[in-house]
């Protein structure tokens, strides 16, 4: 079993997490949506480039809030966040989109466009960067094939099963080879078999050097992968478990 231990303010430890090379660094970050209540409170954490981290904790612990801070969907109320060398707290409005293009996000509710085909949905992530249409098609096809969805590329999301939609969301997050992949409950409503399949897909991104953060409340998965796991409770980090027996 993993040995729990606190890791505040990026104290080194993980073999693959040299200090200073953090893809994501948070310093005493707090987030308050409503005055008087905190979704996150004094969170300090460092994630290295290529690191795979689980974010766990009960509902309302602040997992989604933490992810939102990382890709600039929310601003911290206090503290500093440095993502890929950018200070989120001081990022100008026009600097947010370029940062987001370097971060793939798999949303809990997928956020697919129902009136666009699977191919068009995935292509969106490339179109915002002005990628040539031919290259876009090739890369979309490649990622869909990798996720076993190539035969679904002209279908609309609503005609797909939950697992297929989940994979389309992952395809969109991975298609432009992001430096960071954030996945919010990516296996939320999948059967155990599909859960493993999808987790393997996500884990494979980390092998290519992408920093991966997976928010989940399924401790079974966390145990199975034996990766670093950060546990949030009431908006605070209560546990930061280093990988004990890496599987891969």
């Amino acid at each position: 079993m993993s040995r729990p231990r606190f890791r505040l303010r990026g104290g080194g430890g993980a073999v693959n997490a040299p200090r200073g090379d953090g893809a994501i660094r948070m310093f005493h970050v707090s987030k308050s949506y409503l005055a008087g209540s905190f979704a996150l409170r004094d969170v300090s954490i460092e994630l290295a480039k290529g690191e795979f981290v689980f974010l766990t904790g009960p509902s309302g612990a602040g997992k989604t809030s933490l992810l939102k801070l990382i890709f600039g969907a929310e601003r911290p109320s206090e503290g500093q966040i440095v993502v890929l060398g950018r200070n989120i707290a001081r990022l100008g409005e026009s600097a947010v989109p370029p940062l987001r293009r370097r971060i793939g996000v798999v949303f809990q509710d997928f956020k697919l466009l129902p009136r666009r085909t699977v191919e068009e949905n995935v292509a969106l992530a490339l179109q915002v960067t002005g990628t040539p249409p031919r290259e876009t098609r090739a890369r979309v096809f490649a990622i869909l094939k990798q996720l076993g969805l190539q035969h679904r590329r002209y279908h609309h999301p609503l005609s797909l099963s939950g697992g297929e939609q989940q994979r389309v969301a992952i395809a969109r997050a991975l298609v432009n080879e992001p430096e960071i992949l954030l996945a919010d409950e990516p296996t939320g409503n999948l059967d155990p078999e599909l859960t493993l399949e999808i987790m393997d897909l996500i884990a494979s991104a980390a092998l290519r050097g992408t920093t991966v953060v997976v928010a989940t409340h399924e401790l079974e998965i966390v145990r199975r992968y034996g990766k670093r796991a950060v546990r949030l409770e009431g908006g605070q980090i209560v546990e930061d478990t280093q990988p004990s027996m890496p599987r891969s």
Partner: peptide, 13 residues
Amino acid sequence: DELEILSLVGASR
């Protein structure tokens, strides 16, 4: 919805 998603995948204003 489309605009929100565009913005989430990094579309500029």
